[in-house]
Design a protein around this nucleic acid. Structure first.
Lengths: 124, 124
DNA sequence: CACCAATGATTACATTTGTAATCATTGGTG
DNA sequence: CACCAATGATTACAAATGTAATCATTGGTG
């Protein structure tokens, strides 16, 4: 998987939210959260195309872009890379850090319990 | 917190494992896992000094380096940044991804349960 | 003392990334 | 048809990053 930079990720994430999308669609969506010039968005979009994370279909002069890389595949890859790099591949130290720094809510705990419960149903 | 690149992190991680350490100590340690030229390690070390992640004490011509940035602070910051960026600040989707992709072991589950149990003792 | 290797400081260069600007083409409108 | 704005393609430039090389200084040794 080719590396996708943080700025590129923002563009790709906007596309995952809604596609197919034109460059102008994405520029409008991103303008809500990032004060980026439209030229910046177009460049990042073109880099994503070059990296084969995004494809497009021509419709007259307008291009309609769609993701080639799935959000889940990407988030899993990035998560795993970070866990590997920082925690020798173990997820528990990451969660322990969140717990220690009071960054877990009751809702998070419930959700984790649910995931564990489901895992046990499928694996124990 | 100043961004620490992946290569810089490797040097810093070697230092966290054992400090104070000379440049040569680090070069030797890193040589085990990375085929880096010694000049590369020195450059990365100097960049870490510039970023104030690392300090040093002179001992004749030899410098003994030590971390200024704590491993836990860094790993928590990076973890949180990733979770914020990819999962809107929620840890459960990250764990759910690991579960879904069969990347959790029984041992991970035990550890997560322990963390949850501890959290509940301190917060419920 | 002279020499040399060791050590850190500084420089180098290619690639990647962030944030644009400029250029070329082309639909649409008057 | 001419013109112009829209649209994508290409270029630009600074900073960060990866991976070095070169330079300046200085301990240690013969």
């Amino acid at each position: 998987m080719k590396d996708i930079s943080k700025a590129e990720y923002e563009v790709l994430n906007a596309l995952w939210e809604k596609y197919p999308a034109s460059a102008n669609d994405l520029i409008a969506t991103l303008n809500i959260i990032k004060p980026w010039h439209d030229k910046t968005v177009k460049t990042l979009l073109n880099r994503l195309v070059k990296k084969e994370a995004v494809g497009f279909q021509k419709e007259k002069r307008k291009y309609l872009y769609y993701p080639l890389l799935e959000k889940e595949a990407y988030t899993q890859y990035e998560s795993k890379s970070l866990i590997e790099r920082l925690f020798s591949g173990r997820v528990s130290p990451l969660i322990a850090g969140f717990a220690k720094n009071q960054e877990l809510k009751k809702e998070d705990i419930s959700q984790l319990k649910e995931i564990i419960s489901q895992w046990e149903k499928e694996n124990d």
